[in-house]
Design a protein around this nucleic acid. Sequence first.
DNA 1: AATCTTTTCGGGAACGTTGCCATTAGTGTA
DNA 2: TACACTAATGGCAACGTTCCCGAAAAGATT
Lengths: 345, 345
Amino acid sequence: MEHITIKDIAKALNLSTSTVSRALRGSHEINPVTKLLVMEYAEKFNYQPNPIALSLKENKSRSIGVIVPEIDNPFFSQAINGIEDIAYNKGYQVVIFQSHESYEREVINTQHITSRRVDGLLISLSGQTTNVEHLKNLHDKGLPIVLFDRISDEINTHKVISDNFEGSFNGTEHLIKTGRKRIAHIAASPHLSISKERVKGYLAALAKHNIPVDESLLKYCNYGLQDIEVVIDQLFANETPPDAIFTASDRLALGCLSTLKKRNIKVPEDIALIGFTNLKVAALLAPSLSTIVQPALDMGKRSAELLFDLIENTSKLPKSYRTFKLYTELIVRNSSVMKSDEERL
Amino acid sequence: MEHITIKDIAKALNLSTSTVSRALRGSHEINPVTKLLVMEYAEKFNYQPNPIALSLKENKSRSIGVIVPEIDNPFFSQAINGIEDIAYNKGYQVVIFQSHESYEREVINTQHITSRRVDGLLISLSGQTTNVEHLKNLHDKGLPIVLFDRISDEINTHKVISDNFEGSFNGTEHLIKTGRKRIAHIAASPHLSISKERVKGYLAALAKHNIPVDESLLKYCNYGLQDIEVVIDQLFANETPPDAIFTASDRLALGCLSTLKKRNIKVPEDIALIGFTNLKVAALLAPSLSTIVQPALDMGKRSAELLFDLIENTSKLPKSYRTFKLYTELIVRNSSVMKSDEERL
DNA sequence: AATCTTTTCGGGAACGTTGCCATTAGTGTA
DNA sequence: TACACTAATGGCAACGTTCCCGAAAAGATT
């Protein structure tokens, strides 16, 4: 990969590098004839400015870092899709990191991030993360950061989330209204903001309808299939097992469905199931999965927009950071409502 | 984001930058006392070498570019997962680009790639791409490139694919062996290598079992849901409609399933369906989807390994480039076999 | 004719780092 | 005592670009 440089052009045309540089950028203080000469030569030999040299000079990289737990998770890949879209239009590069839900890996990633001099950071916290000092440090040093989906109260910056409380509330209330009495909630990692908010929504819906809280119906669970099986079995070991499960994520809902099938527990007859998800295939599952949809793509876009806002106005700090709540939507399908006809076609 | 530099250390310790540089890298020609002094100062003020300055000097970026059609496609996000894994261990950054199945966008991406001075490129071609001059140019200029999944014969470099022919052959033969007579094949973009190979496998299986080829049963189709509906309707407008559909991708299979449901055509009773996919949820669909599994993660890993091999041995060009074929596996589920009991529980 | 402006260009520093080539002081050798 | 030799360090160029400063020539103004 050899590249022609401004020096090469200068030498070939018997000009100085400064003249070539200015000609290339169309400066008015260059003779139109010279300008044309330079332009044509550059065109002919396919001159491309070296962004690394520019980065060194301007002390910015025109790239942003993105840290997500797993890229191979539809929610995050959709969000990244949105991020890439905005970044592309801004002429920025997107550099991807995965924490694999590990705190240590997340810390290492942030170190890479700084050493690589990205201009900003988008991050959704790992499930293990309870301490956010590594991010605070970066932010204090002036790195623009936007948190999305899995956020932390301890960092004062822009944040983008979906309305987890409302979504959770609506999902739970839907189960109540369709006659379910013992509604279990399976949450993800207890450290996560999304878990906390969704648990709150769940509890609020129960409270509104005067349903007593049964601690044994509130479970926290990892994404692994074995973990889910354990939780399901615990729930059904209960003297009066649940007649509905509201799971806090797509993966959990899929795991539940799979386990329930294996245990020969019928959905929705024996138990209603509703997820918190964005899976495109939710409608095609057996039974089709009721769910609370999150706008992953929009979350990615919005987060990226906010980040670029911070990056480009890095001098004048915003007087106040905001947390943007995006809509959620309850979609009722067969897993939560008995429609015997459709289910048995 | 302010960073301490070697100059800062030199000034503070009353040394020259070269001495500091050498001390930091543990050179033997530096007095151990000085070395320690420098090391401690660097540690204390959290010195991190500036990779951009290094890149400029060494003319490499320690980053690789990845161009995929859509990141929000489970196959590609899994592949990227594998790529990121290898790159992480090598200390390289992964920069993501999407072509959105557009040839123009792909060309623009390759331009960005070069101007950004990545050290290597991993690419899976867009569905529109028929001309690969843009990649040939890069390759001729010495940029290490590895193609994966959607490859082109016209570029002579390492390639990683799954055994599309065999997978397709096995899938088709499975349908034949379970008694299907009129087997349709819905392929993706006719330009894609994967389409061609899968069509070949399909035809080979028909030939082996002396089933005449009916051109009207071989369709090419985009990923859009409307496109799929059109194709399905065409197939069923046939005087003797198919009794099996073998689709060449996950998305197509999902679209088919959805359309068939809408048209009230029963799977697998009226028609068998089998996909070419890696979807984790395939087992949970209604009916569960028979499929040919591709090792997306492994493809990503292998591609990345090959790329780093090329990057690190860039001086000595390999005498011959290879195309690596990874295994596929046929998984039979309910969409292709009638198991009336299980299906009606 | 003398001075002031423009126009058009070149020189050189700077960004952070490395590596080559001095340079100094101290040590050993003939 | 003069010489070579080593250890330890400094100076400087280079990577590609921009930008500030200055300079020369031509034109405009008095």
